[in-house]
Amino acid sequence: MTNKNITFGGKPVTLKGTQVKIGDKAENFKALKQDLSEFDFYNETEGKIKVISVVPSIDTGVCSLQTQRFNEESTKLSDDVFIVTISVDLPFAQKRFCGAEGIENIKVVSDHKDLDFGDKYGFTIEEFRLLSRGVLVINKDNKIEYVEYLDEVTNHPNYDKALEEIKKLI
Rank of each mutant, 00 (worst) to 15 (best):
L32F: 03
L32K: 14
L32G: 01
K33M: 09
Q34L: 04
D35K: 00
D35H: 02
D35F: 05
L36Q: 08
L36S: 13
L36H: 11
L36G: 03
L36I: 05
S37F: 09
S37W: 04
S37T: 06
S37D: 15
S37K: 15
S37N: 12
E38M: 15
E38G: 00
E38T: 15
F39H: 02
F39C: 05
F39S: 05
D40W: 10
D40Q: 06
D40M: 12
D40R: 08
F41W: 15
F41A: 08
F41R: 09
Y42W: 06
Y42T: 07
Y42P: 08
Y42C: 06
Y42G: 00
Y42Q: 01
N43S: 12
N43Q: 14
N43A: 15
E44G: 02
E44D: 05
E44Q: 14
T45W: 04
E46G: 06
E46L: 11
E46M: 06
G47R: 03
G47I: 07
G47L: 07
G47P: 10
K48D: 03
K48S: 00
K48Y: 08
I49G: 00
I49N: 05
K50E: 02
K50I: 09
K50Q: 14
V51C: 13
V51I: 10
V51S: 08
V51D: 05
V51F: 04
I52T: 00
I52Y: 07
I52S: 07
I52E: 02
S53R: 14
S53T: 03
S53M: 13
S53G: 07
V54H: 14
V54Y: 03
V55G: 01
V55D: 01
V55R: 01
V55H: 06
P56V: 08
P56F: 08
P56E: 07
S57I: 07
S57K: 07
S57W: 10
S57A: 15
I58N: 12
I58P: 11
D59S: 12
T60M: 04
T60W: 10
G61D: 14
G61K: 11
G61A: 11
V62H: 06
C63M: 03
C63A: 07
C63R: 04
S64V: 01
S64R: 13
S64G: 13
L65P: 03
L65K: 09
Q66V: 00
Q66K: 08
Q66C: 07
Q66D: 14
T67K: 08
T67D: 12
Q68P: 00
Q68S: 09
Q68D: 07
R69P: 02
R69M: 12
R69H: 08
R69Y: 14
R69I: 14
F70N: 02
F70R: 00
F70P: 01
F70A: 06
F70G: 04
